[in-house]
Amino acid sequence: MSSTITSPENKAGSQLRTQHDPDSQMATVHMRTDKPHTEPAEKDATAIVMEDLSSWYGSFQALKSISLNVRKNKVTAFIGPSGCGKSTLLRWINRMNDTIHSARATGNLHLGDLDLLASTTDVVDLRRKVGIVFQKPNPFPKSIFDNVAFGPRLHMKLRRNELLDIVEWSLRKAAVWDEVKDRLHAPALGLSGGQQQRLCIARTIAVGPEVLLMDEPCSALDPGSTLAIEELMNELRDQYTIVIVTHNMQQASRCSDETAFFFEGKLIEMNDTQSIFTNPANQKTEDYISGRFG
């Protein structure tokens, strides 16, 4: 993956839209469909396979026999009311649940050939392949540059200018380069919430992951920053498989290709986002998306 980071084509192709006109929020869905897909061959390739995945915290069962596939280079949204297990599921994909002593899981969870639940899986390497962005922006109390360089420094021996290339590429990709390029060595905590979250995304993609997990990435942000991050997800989908957990159904409908609806630890329904929101098969899904509960 390190080759993708430094390759010049990526840098050239990373000129992101930065306009924030009010119409684009509405237009996002259409703009996405207009855009030609770069790799039609891989359109339906599966990135993550879950079969009969159940998970417990102590004696509490958080996930009940989940089976679903996450497609490659697509944005998959997990929606559902609080406590339905969507974050738990997300945190199993890069084994962040390992930090919780009482958490355990059964079933199958594969990323390509990699068995994600095996105790022999190298979680450190896994988390390099599967990056995660959290609900609350959590930049390290270091400079902007050091924040983005943190991941690459963990995994690679790099010269100063190679590191600079990666940092610039990541910040450009995360659409925050223009705002921070003149103060790369200023403390990251001085940025606004939205900038911090985009910095966190830059930090995550700097490691060169295949999959991006986003755990309610916009719930602590203002509408402007939310829009910027949604546009960013549109840009990033060509290169990454994105899984996003969100409470915001408009957000799920705007920026995801597929949507999975969870309720009380069970997968109720998963389908194309358009089908889920226009023609849900399950009554519970319809109740939830129409705001009758949740």
Binding site: T99, V124, R127, K136, F140, P141, G151, T204, V207
Partner: peptide, 24 residues
């Protein structure tokens, strides 16, 4: 959240302590 951030980037527990937790 800082520890989780570093772990999520693929840091080993010692790298988390040395690079993130201890400096803070």
């Amino acid at each position: 959240t800082l520890r989780a951030g570093a772990l999520g980037l693929g840091a080993t527990p010692w790298q988390v302590v040395w690079n993130v937790t201890l400096p803070s």
